[in-house]
């Protein structure tokens, strides 16, 4: 039976992780490769790097981080942030990423998703959907870290990119991100029920119960979290044990 996935996400800037990761045995708190290795050993099901490097010149540091990580971690790695051109995807995949997550470029030009999926295969194209609730049961896509509204309905957009060839959707609730109040379940479920591709719930995890809700109530098949793991509040093992106890199929 297929197991539900737990995916820690690391924010990387200029080749270094920015949100402090609080592992007991961490030597260099800013080294994404070392953190990836520890998550690998802890039994994470996949790993996600989100590149938040502002300047274009420093983007190359990311390829180096991805290549180094892929040399030591034999687990699936998704890389997102600033992926705008086919060439960006090619470079990330060649460096060792397994999946690339596309956000703004997919919103600006949905045909880019088709182009990417045709070129590299749907299995490595994740579309990242950042949405905010704008009315009861209405969710709108926002870009640029939640600052720019687009007027695009998130559920319709999810359907569209899934048809264009996205192999997976990463659904982040911008209202919940960083609040620790839990995933936006109605948003996650509305999208998960509208498409057949796998959905990753993201944004707002504060407790282990939130992870359970993302799957049980949000109909996602994977949960992404950052701070609850980084700051050592919970380990990957604790998260999986809790989810298994709630009746979810987990790899432990």
């Amino acid at each position: 039976m297929l197991k539900m996935r737990v995916i820690p996400c690391l924010d990387v800037k200029d080749g270094r992780t920015v949100k402090g990761v609080n592992f007991v045995n961490l030597v260099d708190a800013g080294d994404p490769v070392e953190q990836a290795t520890l998550y690998d050993e802890a039994g994470a099901d996949e790993l996600c790097f989100l590149d938040i490097t502002a300047s274009h010149e420093n983007r190359d540091t990311l390829y180096d981080v991805v290549a180094k990580t892929a040399s030591v971690c034999f687990m699936p790695l998704t890389v997102g942030g600033g992926v705008r051109r086919i060439e960006d995807i090619r470079k990330l995949l060649l460096a060792g990423a397994d999946k690339v997550s596309i956000n703004t470029a997919a919103v600006k030009e949905p045909a880019f998703v088709r182009q990417a999926a045709e070129k590299f295969g749907a299995q490595c194209i994740t579309v990242s959907i950042d949405a905010k609730q704008v009315a009861p049961e209405r969710y709108e896509i926002f870009t640029h870290g939640g600052r720019n509204p687009t007027g695009i309905d998130a559920v319709a957009f999810a359907r569209q990119v899934a048809e264009l060839g996205a192999g997976e959707l990463l659904v982040t609730s911008m209202d919940r991100d960083g609040t620790k109040q839990g995933y936006n379940i109605p948003l996650t479920r509305a999208i998960a029920d509208a498409v057949r591709v796998p959905v990753i719930a993201s944004g707002g995890v504060g407790t282990l119960d939130h992870l359970v809700e993302g799957i049980r109530d949000g109909h996602a098949t994977a949960v992404l979290a950052a701070s609850i793991f980084h700051f050592g509040e919970f380990t990957i093992g604790q998260a999986k044990a809790h989810m298994a106890k709630a009746g979810l199929p987990m790899r432990q």
């Binding site: 039976m1 297929l2 197991k3 539900m4 996935r5 099901d45 192999g167 997976e168 796998p198 098949t221």
Partner: peptide, 11 residues
């Protein structure tokens, strides 16, 4: 309810 692609760990 099973997603396509199958994505993840299976025994």
């Amino acid at each position: 309810s099973l997603r396509i692609p199958q994505m993840g760990w299976n025994d």
